[in-house]
Measured scan of single mutants.
Amino acid sequence: KLNEKEKELCQMVRLVPGAYLEYKSALLNECNKQGGLRLAQARALIKIDVNKTRKIYDFLIREGYI
C-alpha cells in the first residue's frame, strides 16, 4: 500500500504503516472538509508526539496530498 517515500517516512518517524495510513486518512479528510489544513489543526487531530506530527504534515505537503 505504501510507496517508497511513505515507507522511508514510517522508518524515519518509527511508525507502523497501519498507523501512518490512519493518520494520513484523518488529515486528508480534514483537509478536504476545511479546504486546507494548518499544522495546529493536524496536531489537534492526531494525538501523537508533535515532532512526528510535524514530519508527517510536512511530508504530506511536500508530496502534494494537502
Rank of each mutant, 00 (worst) to 15 (best):
Leu9Thr: 01
Val16His: 15
Leu27Ser: 00
Ala40Gly: 11
Gly18Gln: 14
Gly35Glu: 09
Lys55His: 12
Lys24Trp: 00
Ile48Lys: 10
Tyr23Glu: 00
Asn32Trp: 11
Asn32Asp: 13
Lys55Met: 14
Tyr20Phe: 07
Arg38Met: 13
Leu45Met: 09
Asn32Thr: 12
Tyr20Ala: 02
Gln11Ile: 06
Pro17Gln: 04
Met12Pro: 01
Leu27Phe: 05
Arg43Val: 15
Asp58Ile: 00
Glu30Arg: 04
Ala19Lys: 15
Arg62Met: 08
Leu21Trp: 08
Cys10Met: 03
Leu9Glu: 02
Ile46Val: 10
Gly64Cys: 02
Ser25Asn: 12
Asn32Ser: 13
Ile56Val: 08
Asp49Ala: 12
Lys55Thr: 12
Arg43Cys: 15
Ile61Thr: 11
Asp58Lys: 08
Gln11Ala: 12
Asn51Gly: 15
Gly64Ala: 04
Ile46Thr: 13
Asp49Leu: 11
Leu45Thr: 09
Met12Gly: 07
Ala42Lys: 03
Arg14Val: 02
Phe59Asp: 00
Lys5Gln: 10
Met12Gln: 15
Gln34Glu: 09
Val50Phe: 10
Phe59Gln: 00
Gly36Ser: 10
Glu6Trp: 06
Glu4Lys: 10
Ala26His: 08
Gln34Asn: 13
Gly35Gln: 09
Ser25Met: 12
Ile56Arg: 03
Asn32Lys: 14
Glu4Val: 08
Leu15Ser: 03
Asp49Met: 10
Arg14Pro: 10
Lys47Arg: 12
Tyr57Glu: 05
Ala40Ser: 15
Asn29Val: 07
Val16Phe: 10
Ala26Arg: 13
Ile61Ala: 10
Tyr65Thr: 12
Leu27Arg: 02
Ala19Ile: 06
Leu37Tyr: 06
Val16Gly: 13
Glu8His: 11
Asn32Leu: 10
Glu22Ala: 12
Lys1Cys: 05
Glu30Met: 11
Cys31Arg: 02
Ile56Lys: 00
Lys47Leu: 03
Thr53His: 01
Lys1Asn: 12
Ala26Glu: 08
Gln34Leu: 14
Lys24Ser: 02
Gly36Val: 07
Leu37Cys: 06
Lys5Cys: 02
Thr53Asn: 04
Ile46Cys: 12
Lys47Ser: 10
Phe59Trp: 03
Ala42Pro: 03
Phe59His: 04
Glu30Trp: 09
Tyr57Pro: 03
Leu27His: 01
Ile46Lys: 09
Gly18His: 11
Tyr23Ser: 03
Asn29His: 12
Asp58Val: 00
Val16Met: 12
Leu2Glu: 01
Glu8Gln: 14
Ala44Lys: 13
Leu60Asn: 03
Glu30Ile: 10
Ala44Tyr: 06
Ile48Asn: 11
Pro17Leu: 00
Arg43Asp: 10
Asp58Gly: 04
Tyr65His: 14
Ala44Glu: 14
Arg62Cys: 05
Glu63Gln: 04
Arg38Ala: 15
Cys31Ala: 14
Tyr57Ser: 03
Arg62Asp: 14
Lys47Ile: 07
Asn3Asp: 13
Leu37Thr: 04
Cys10Ala: 03
Leu45Lys: 08
Lys47Trp: 03
Ile46Arg: 05
Arg14His: 15
Cys10Asn: 12
Leu21Gln: 09
Glu4Ala: 13
Gln11Phe: 00
Glu22Gln: 12
Ala26Ile: 15
Leu21Lys: 06
Ile61Ser: 09
Ser25Asp: 13
Asn32Gln: 13
Lys24Arg: 06
Arg62Ile: 02
Arg43Ser: 14
Lys1Met: 13
Gly64Asn: 08
Ile56Met: 05
Ala44Asp: 15
Asp49Cys: 12
Gly18Asp: 15
Gln11Leu: 07
Val50Ala: 14
Ile61Pro: 02
Tyr20Asn: 01
Cys10Ile: 11
Glu63His: 03
Leu60Met: 13
Lys55Cys: 12
Asn3Tyr: 00
Ser25Ile: 09
Ile61Gly: 06
Lys7Tyr: 08
Leu39Trp: 15
Leu37Val: 07
Ala44Gly: 10
Lys55Pro: 10
Leu39Ser: 06
Ile66Glu: 06
Asp49Glu: 10
Leu9Ala: 00
Cys10Ser: 04
Ile46Ser: 13
Gly18Ala: 15
Ala42Phe: 00
Glu22Pro: 00
Tyr65Gln: 12
Ile66Met: 13
Leu9Ser: 02
Gly18Lys: 15
Ile48Ala: 13
Cys10Leu: 09
Gln34Ala: 11
Leu2Val: 05
Ile61Gln: 12
Lys47Thr: 08
Lys33His: 12
Thr53Val: 15
Leu28Ala: 07
Leu27Lys: 01
Gln11Thr: 11
Glu6Val: 08
Gly64Ile: 06
Lys5Gly: 08
Arg38Glu: 14
Gly35Thr: 04
Arg54Ser: 14
Ile66Leu: 14
Leu15Gly: 01
Ala44Leu: 01
Leu9Lys: 01
Tyr23Ile: 15
Leu21Glu: 04
Gly35Ala: 05
Glu8Val: 08
Gly18Tyr: 07
Phe59Lys: 00
Phe59Met: 02
Ala42Thr: 05
Asn32Gly: 11
Asp49Gly: 11
Leu27Trp: 10
Pro17Ser: 01
Ile56Thr: 04
Arg62Ser: 11
Asn29Met: 08
Glu22Thr: 10
Leu2Gly: 00
Ala40Tyr: 07
Lys33Gly: 07
Arg14Glu: 15
Ala44Cys: 10
Leu21Pro: 00
Tyr65Glu: 12
Leu9Tyr: 04
Phe59Arg: 02
Leu28Trp: 08
